[in-house]
Each structure stands twice: as structure tokens, then as C-alpha cells.
Design a protein around this nucleic acid. Structure first.
Lengths: 199, 199
DNA sequence: CCTGATGATGTGACTGAGTAACATCACCGT
DNA sequence: ACGGTGATGTTACTCAGTCACATCATCAGG
């Protein structure tokens, strides 16, 4: 299977992270990334649709994972449990070095609006997938939307907490914890809000 | 105040919409847009940071509006009422021809991923602004997040409904209606979910 | 061991987005 | 009339991304 140097995509990812971290995203040329990975600009764009996509490769997997997670949930699952199943499947879909990669990616995202835009788009794709999956099991499209938002929030914030933590906790535990907190916040919200909230 | 032909930004917007609708986004050159508006490519990029931004000009106003709306809400307002104040202010921040512009923009967005990405980014900017504004009045950051998501959902869906409707209803009514529906969905969600929603 | 098919890569040339330096021109106040 | 200011035009440039074509490493089969 493997001819030439294997794992061109992985090499390009590492090269991109390294160069972006040194010189910044805009100051790094696509040709430089390719050369640093022992390839050419043309080959780079054979693997990725554009420069940003190097860093966000494999996010499509997450969209599929979240759908599969909801689809695979037991028939008697409550709306919240369906959401949990979706984000749990999301967590399981990652590779092991996500923590290290994430730690390198995080500061880059923080200072590069162009990358934030792509990250936001990927997040919304996951959110939409989760919403549609939930909708097919819930009938109420608005509940599906609210749960999708809550689930994706819990996922991203659980991920951030897990990434920055030194401990040996797992991603999925961190996300579950976050989702539980969101569920509680939601309960408090409804309880404390007067019924006729008109105007 | 007005020298030369006035309202360069508006002319560029109309030119862009027209050409994008005819030939598509990618097939339209920045120079063509500029020429169609009686300007030059350089001048176009003096007004807008990039090609997409022509269509999304003025969205910064919305971010400010949502902040101001929450800030201006009465001290005794409930969380849901704060959210309502934010999105109401959002609705009020629009120009009158939004309906027509939106109807032209909508099909473009539907078939141009590059534009969807920017639209998603703008939406997330509004959502973040709403969340921060709510957080400063609510202390619970997770409630702020959930409410921001619900509010922005109601805003965008209310907007879509209002835009496609032939009637003479107002934007704010459509959005309020949507937000009420979301509040109801939220109540049902909490009521129907068993308390120990673990696993 | 040769040979042709296949698929990943390289080369060179091209279009278009976006930038920058410098020149120009319309208006406005004096 | 005159000078200042700000919006625009001109020209040339870098870089992202594309395309047609050439190359080369591997593998299957003779």
C-alpha cells in the first residue's frame, strides 16, 4: 500500500502546524509548507482543498460519528440521552494524539481569524448533523435544535477543559460532565422563568 | 459630505448581487463587480476586506445592537426577557430594504459554500455577543450560552419566515413568535426528561 | 526478468484575490 | 483663485489555487 514516503497528509499537517506556529498563518506560504513536508505546492492542493483545510482534515468523520451515535441509541432513550449518545460517539471518533495536536492548534486559532472562521464552520456542520439526527428521533425540530446546540457546546467546552487539564481524565468523561452541567442549567432556567414571558 | 457618485458600498453591493445571481459567485471577478459599480478593483478592496464581505457589510452593527439591547433591559427582567430584549434590538437595527435584499441573497447562500462559511461566522459573532451580554446580567455562563443559542436560532428562523412570507407582518413579530415557540419547546423538554439522565 | 498499467508526485504556466506605492481628481474652506 | 483633504485610479506585485502534461515508483502478469 505504501509507496514513496507514507502519510503525506500527516506530514503536511505537522509541517503546517510547525510553520504557522513559528511565522504565523499568513506569513507562511503554501509552497513552504509543502517543501517542509518534502512535497510540492501542487501535491498539497491535491490533498487539501485549501490552506486552512490542512489543519481541519478529518472533521467529516465527526459529522458521520454524531449521526451514527444518535442512530445507534436505544429506542427508549430520552431526548437528553439521545444527545449524550451523539456527543459520546463524537468523542470516540478521535485519534489518540488529539490532545497534543489540540494544544498546538489552540494558540493558532486564538490569533488567526481566518482559521476561526473555518473552525466555526466545522462546528456548525457538526451542530447541524446532530440537529438533523435528533430531529429524526424527536419529531420536534426546535427541541432538536436546542439539544444540538447544548450538546455541541458541551462537546467543545468539555474538549477544551480536557485539553488544558494535566490529569489523566478521558475526553468523554469531561464532555459528559459538561453536558450534565448544561442539563442542570437548563432545568434551573425553566424553573426560574415566569410562565408568561411575553414582551 | 457626498462627492463623486455617492454610496459606493451600496452600489458595490447591488453590483455584486446582480453579477453573482447571473454568473455565480466564483465565476464573478472582483474587477467585474467594481467595473459594474463604476469603480476599480483597488477601490473595491478599500471598502471591503474581501469579496465575500461585500454581501455581509454592516453585520458589525448587529453585534453592537444585541449588546445594547440586553444592556438596556430593565433590571428586573428574567433571563428569557433579557434574551428577548437582545433579539428585539437586533431586529430594530436593520434597514428597511432588508426583506428585498434578503430575498436576493438567500438563493446565493444556498448554493455557495464559501458564502455560507462567512454567514456562519457572522452568526456566531452575534451569538457570542449575545452570550457575553447575557452572562454579564446572569452570572451563570451556561444559561447565557443556551439562551444565546436559542435567541439566535429564533432570530434567524423568524427572519427566514418573515422573508418568505407575503404578508405584511413585521420582522420583530415573526422573531418574537419564534422565540415563544422555542421557550415552549424548552419547557416541554425539561418536563419530559427524567431527572437522572445519566448514560 | 521484463513490461505495461496504475497512481502519486513534479513542472510550468496560468487566473484571480488581495496589497501597496504613487498619481490624480473632486470638493471644501479660506 | 488656492491649498488641503479624502476618495479614486494606475501599475505592479505576491500568493492561493488550478490545470495540462511529464515522470516515476510500485505491482501484476508474462
Amino acid at each position: 500500500m505504501s509507496r514513496w514516503e507514507p502519510d503525506a497528509r500527516g506530514r503536511l499537517l505537522r509541517a503546517a502546524i510547525e510553520l504557522f506556529s513559528e511565522r504565523g498563518y499568513e506569513a507562511t506560504t503554501a509552497a513552504q509548507i509543502a517543501a517542509h513536508a518534502g512535497l510540492t505546492k501542487t501535491t498539497l492542493f491535491r490533498h487539501f482543498a485549501d490552506k486552512r483545510e490542512i489543519l481541519f482534515q478529518g472533521q467529516d468523520v465527526l459529522v458521520e460519528a454524531v449521526k451514527a451515535g444518535v442512530r445507534g441509541a436505544p429506542a427508549e432513550a430520552s431526548p437528553m440521552e439521545l444527545t449524550r449518545a451523539g456527543v459520546a460517539s463524537l468523542c470516540a471518533a478521535h485519534s489518540e494524539d488529539l490532545r497534543d495536536t489540540g494544544r498546538l492548534l489552540d494558540p493558532l486559532l486564538a490569533k488567526t481569524p481566518e482559521l476561526q472562521e473555518r473552525a466555526t464552520f466545522k462546528r456548525s456542520a457538526i451542530s447541524e448533523a446532530l440537529q438533523h439526527a435528533l430531529h429524526s428521533r424527536l419529531s420536534d425540530i426546535r427541541q432538536a435544535g436546542l439539544l444540538a446546540d447544548a450538546g455541541v457546546r458541551a462537546y467543545y467546552e468539555g474538549y477544551a477543559a480536557w485539553m488544558h487539564a494535566d490529569g489523566t481524565g478521558t475526553l468523554i468523561d469531561s464532555v459528559h460532565e459538561e453536558l450534565t452541567a448544561y442539563e442542570a442549567a437548563l432545568r434551573r432556567l425553566v424553573k426560574d422563568t415566569p410562565r408568561p414571558a411575553s414582551f
